[in-house]
Design a binder for these strands. Structure first.
Length: 405
RNA sequence: GCGUCGGUGGCGGAGUGGUCAAUCGCACUUGACUGUAAAUCAAGCGCCUUCGGGCUACGCAGGUUCGAAUCCUGCCCGGCGCACCA
């Protein structure tokens, strides 16, 4: 049982283990309790399915009784991770961080029990040690790395090649992140493959200051196998937020490319690998990807919203998209009698502008559910009695006229 | 500091006096189709419009011109090269 769990830790969603899988396996089998951590960026409270992979893995360590730490990168956030080129430095107030952290706990709390009394999860803030780091110490840390090694890094190399700015302080970023491992007395860090460089910097520093081996597990990123694009990207807004309401979360999972189904099962759910193998086989043998993707969507919604909500989301999806029925619950807006439908929708911010409304109507994308027709007149003013409108496939609005002033 | 190149829509990236609200790719929206909000195909993608057009936009501020994203001046920001380097 224990061995099985260890095997899963060492393989599922794992890209690479440094220094080696065998070395980590040996330590895990020895029964030694490790200090394992994952870093989070507190600049926003946005956590998506891609992040969840790391926490699911962290959970596995937690279940084996290892000490689990969530590191809040409140100090490094003010520098801006060079891995993310939109390096707008954000000045975070303590309040922002706290708020984001609370939201984070709510979302990831569904994966790991943060309030487990038997094995409490530690939350640490790197400003505690980084904000007070003096230049002497920083110089000492920096002396562990050569400039050559820094500029070898592809984000840096690419930016130099493209003539994009590259600031000196960006070199500090991996150093600081690496020093976190020292301050935490970490034995193991988990992060996406995009964090490899930063996490490896920590290995060097831990060896230097603590004279021990820090293990690093990089986890696979969800990618579109066709384009190689990251499936979950904060900047592209393609990720599936863990804050999504059940119907939305379900639908967004359904919108993922068919080719990613198996990987999502592996990385975003706790469905046993044996079952995942079954699913893989089923797909290979011509199983309907839609049905299998529905299982996936169901599993994911279940994780974050519970069984009831998963059922409801599934039902909603089937009704709305498979059978194209009108949902029971829809957004309602109240408007004075006689107002143009388009104006009402714009002022309710359901549509960004009148031009957009015009395009939607001209493109045949607006339907009057009350009588089953497609609205073709942009100046339609059917606001005398309640009107149900469908815009595109997934926006439903009920317009309620009120004669009140 | 000097020289030089550049700053364009959500992003990447064309355009270098008029036909530019700005080629194209990505993202996004809508439609068709379907097995799904997949894939594929089609259309759209600044704002307003009585559909004639109007308005605001190409780092910022001025200027030249009948007319500027495109030319000039100044400023701000960046790349590269040179210089400086106790």
């Amino acid at each position: 049982m224990q061995d099985e769990k260890i095997d899963e830790i060492l393989s599922r969603s794992v890209d690479t283990i440094y220094p080696s899988k065998e070395a980590l396996k040996e330590v895990l089998l020895s029964g030694k309790k490790l200090r394992v951590y994952v870093g989070i960026d507190p600049t926003s409270d946005y956590v998506h399915l891609g992040h969840s992979t790391n926490y699911i893995l962290l959970k596995r360590f937690h279940e084996l009784g290892h000490t689990v730490i969530v590191l809040v990168g409140d100090f490094t956030a003010t520098i801006g991770d060079p891995s993310d080129k939109s390096a707008v430095r954000i000045q975070l107030t303590e309040d922002d961080v706290r708020k984001n952290l609370e939201t984070f706990k709510e979302q990831i709390g569904k994966v790991i029990d943060f309030y487990d009394e038997k094995n409490p999860v530690e939350f640490r803030f790197n400003s505690d040690w980084l904000a007070v780091l003096d230049l002497k110490k920083l110089t000492d840390i920096a002396s562990s790395f050569t400039v050559q090694r820094m500029i070898e890094r592809d984000v840096f190399r690419r930016r130099m090649k493209e003539g994009k700015p590259l600031y000196v302080h960006e070199f500090f970023y991996p150093l600081m992140q690496g020093y976190d491992s020292v301050a935490l007395d970490a034995d193991l860090e988990i992060g996406g493959t995009d964090q490899t460089f930063n996490m490896l910097a920590g290995r060097d520093l831990v060896k230097k200051y603590l004279n021990k081996e820090k293990f690093v597990i990089t986890t696979t990123l969800l990618e579109n196998p066709k384009t190689g694009e990251k499936l979950m990207s904060k900047s592209l807004d393609t990720g599936i937020s863990l804050k999504s309401v059940p119907e939305d979360m379900y639908g967004r999972v359904m919108a993922l490319p068919d080719e990613t189904i198996v990987q999502c099962f592996i990385d975003c759910t706790t469905v046993p690998m044996a079952d995942v193998e079954e699913i893989k086989k089923e797909l290979a043998e011509g199983g309907n990807p839609r049905d299998i993707k529905m299982q996936l969507a169901r599993n994911i919604v279940l994780m974050y919203h519970g069984e009831d909500m998963a059922n409801k989301a599934e039902e909603y999806f089937i009704k709305t998209f498979s059978r194209k029925e009108t949902p029971e619950h829809m957004q309602e807006i109240r408007v004075p009698v006689g107002v143009l439908v388009g104006d009402a929708l714009v002022s309710a911010k359901i549509i960004p502008s009148k031009s957009e409304w015009r395009r939607l109507v001209e493109g045949g994308g607006v339907h009057n559910l009350s009588n089953g027709s497609t609205i073709t007149d942009i100046n339609t003013a059917e606001t005398k009695k309640p009107l149900e409108i469908k815009i595109g496939k997934r926006t439903f609005v009920r317009i309620l006229p009120s004669d009140g002033k």
